[in-house]
């Protein structure tokens, strides 16, 4: 038992040291952009979102095999707890019958954002798959610029050797503003406003912009429009600011400590605690904005 504890604590220290290196090298660099018709996409963020989605899907698939009523396993109990908690939340804010329809969206949103916030603590540095071998004629272990002619697959057009497919370092996708903004647009604009149009009709939706009835409502129209935009801005920047703030603070403190000591307390606070609270807040606010239009009377 003691040996196990010692080994696991050593492994933990090694992991945290490695992850502080990951933060130090890659966190504040601009990730390699992909250009499609003038739109720039961040390669790292897209790959990490895919990894998060794969992790959630795999864990849920593994946990939901061999379900039984009589003898529930550990994974089944855990998954049932999560589902029941969100079922209660959704029923409480939207309503007992209509709320069930929103359960998959809200539960997945929480799991996705929470896993995104946690994945920065996995200590994996970025690497390259399928890299073209260096033209290393004098065998000093590095590329020789003088003895190398322009390769045919210089996709970046920067005159440099193409490193192949970049597997990004494990960083929080939510520290890139585009991910919270995309989630906010999806949940507040598409699901929230969409279900309001579907339930109250287009005319009812337009009337909600003139919300206190009568003459005051006409004066309130610009305010209501700005308020709806402010919802999306505030929900997305809150998540982005907290997670990005954690990344910046951990990077700077690790730099001050010369990457020798690891700020474990900061990882605990900004990684685990703030990450969980902010994931829950994002979910709750999305649910609140949806329930403003879709709640049962």
């Amino acid at each position: 038992m003691k040996r196990l504890l010692r080994n696991s604590s050593l492994a933990l220290v090694a992991m945290l040291t490695a992850s502080s290196y990951a933060f130090a090298e890659g966190a504040l660099d601009a990730p390699m952009p992909i250009e499609i018709h003038g739109w720039f996409f961040s390669h790292d963020t897209i790959v990490m979102c895919g990894v998060v989605a794969f992790v959630i899907t795999a864990l849920c698939w593994l946990g939901s095999r061999g379900l039984s009523k009589e003898k529930p396993g550990k994974a089944q109990v855990l998954l049932e707890m999560i589902v029941t908690a969100f079922d209660d939340l959704v029923k409480q804010s939207i309503g007992p019958t209509r709320g069930r329809k929103y359960l998959p969206y809200i539960g997945t949103l929480f799991l996705f954002v929470w896993t995104c916030n946690m994945i920065g603590m996995v200590p994996i540095e970025h690497s390259y798959i399928g890299a073209e071998p260096y033209h290393d004629f004098n065998h000093n272990g590095s590329f020789d610029p003088g003895e190398w002619d322009q390769p045919k697959d210089d996709l970046n057009k920067n005159g440099m050797h193409d490193p192949g497919f970049r597997v990004p370092a494990f960083e929080e996708p939510t520290a890139n503003l585009n991910v919270p903004l995309g989630l906010a647009l999806l949940f507040v604009l598409f699901i929230g406003h969409g279900s309001e149009i579907r339930i109250h009709g287009l005319w009812g939706y337009i009337k909600s912009y003139f919300s206190p009835e009568g003459m005051i409502g006409i004066c309130m129209f610009p305010l209501n429009v700005v308020g709806k935009i402010a919802e999306i801005v505030s929900i997305s920047f809150r998540l982005f600011g907290n997670i990005f703030g954690g990344v910046v603070i951990i990077t700077v403190v690790s730099g001050l400590l010369s990457y020798i000591l690891v700020p474990i307390g900061l990882f605990g606070f900004f990684g685990v605690f703030v990450g969980t609270v902010q994931a829950f807040v994002f979910t709750m606010l999305a649910l609140t904005y949806i329930s403003m239009g879709a709640a049962e009377e």
Partner: peptide
């Protein structure tokens, strides 16, 4: 939360 935002801008 508010002072974390302030700390980030400060850094």
């Amino acid at each position: 939360n508010a002072s974390i935002f302030a700390l980030v801008i400060g850094i």
